[in-house]
Amino acid sequence: MIQDTNIVYRDLLDAYNELIENDRSILAVRKNLQNFLTCSFQLTQVMYKEFPRRTSEKWNSSKFSGWDDISKLFKEFRNVVNHEPPLLVKFDAKHFFSANKVYGYSNSSVGSKISSVEATYETDPRSDCIPDVSNFKIITINIDTDEISNEDAELDHIEYKFAFIPTTDKTKELLNKVGNDDLFELAKHYFKTLQDYYGFYEKSAQEHEFALKSTDI
């Protein structure tokens, strides 16, 4: 017999894969994130109903020792989805140029003749695409004369990320505490926690079921 928790866990797995694999649309990321948060909530809710049915005891999620600040962050964003303003994400890009020195950017860094410049793009939360970041231009400095160069820097590569936008004081506090706003990096960490949590639950349920059968003999 397939347990309800197993069905919801597989729904959660699908939601996680949809989130991680579809990163070419602001709207898709927001929708998939909301679905992922909903499935993570449903997992524990089903455990509360299923565990007593299987073991005649109550389920206590706090017995799982793997919860951390990232877990608290996702729980708080789940509350945002249900009760607060819309869940929002931003699109950040880091451009790497073949240039020794960049003009006019305080958020740039230089190493091995590659300069990096970070930029946040204004995006419509309902946009079905991501911003075009390929035309980003910078002014470079001649490293020998320290004067502005007339030559455009050659773009080496671009790295981009989707990041949480805190819309409540609590989410802002937790994001600062975690020290990372990269949505996908945080989701990967949280999903690993949920995998461990589901394994902990199933092991606990099976042990209690075995104990019940033993007393019936």
Rank of each mutant, 00 (worst) to 15 (best):
Y105D: 06
S106I: 09
S106V: 13
N107G: 02
N107V: 09
S112D: 13
I114G: 05
V117P: 02
E118Y: 15
E118T: 15
A119N: 14
E122G: 05
D124I: 10
D124E: 15
R126A: 14
D128M: 14
D128V: 14
D128E: 13
I130H: 09
I130R: 10
D132C: 12
K137Q: 14
K137L: 09
K137F: 11
I139S: 08
I141R: 03
N142H: 12
D144I: 05
T145V: 10
T145M: 03
D146Q: 14
E147P: 05
N150I: 00
E151N: 02
A153V: 03
E154V: 06
I158H: 02
I158Q: 08
F162Y: 07
T171S: 12
E173W: 05
L174N: 10
L175T: 09
L175N: 08
L175Q: 06
K177D: 09
V178I: 07
D181Q: 13
D181I: 04
D181R: 06
D182H: 15
L183N: 07
F184L: 14
E185C: 04
L186S: 02
K188T: 01
K192G: 02
T193G: 02
T193Y: 04
D196K: 12
G199A: 11
F200P: 06
Y201T: 05
E202R: 11
K203V: 05
S204T: 12
Q206R: 13
Q206S: 12
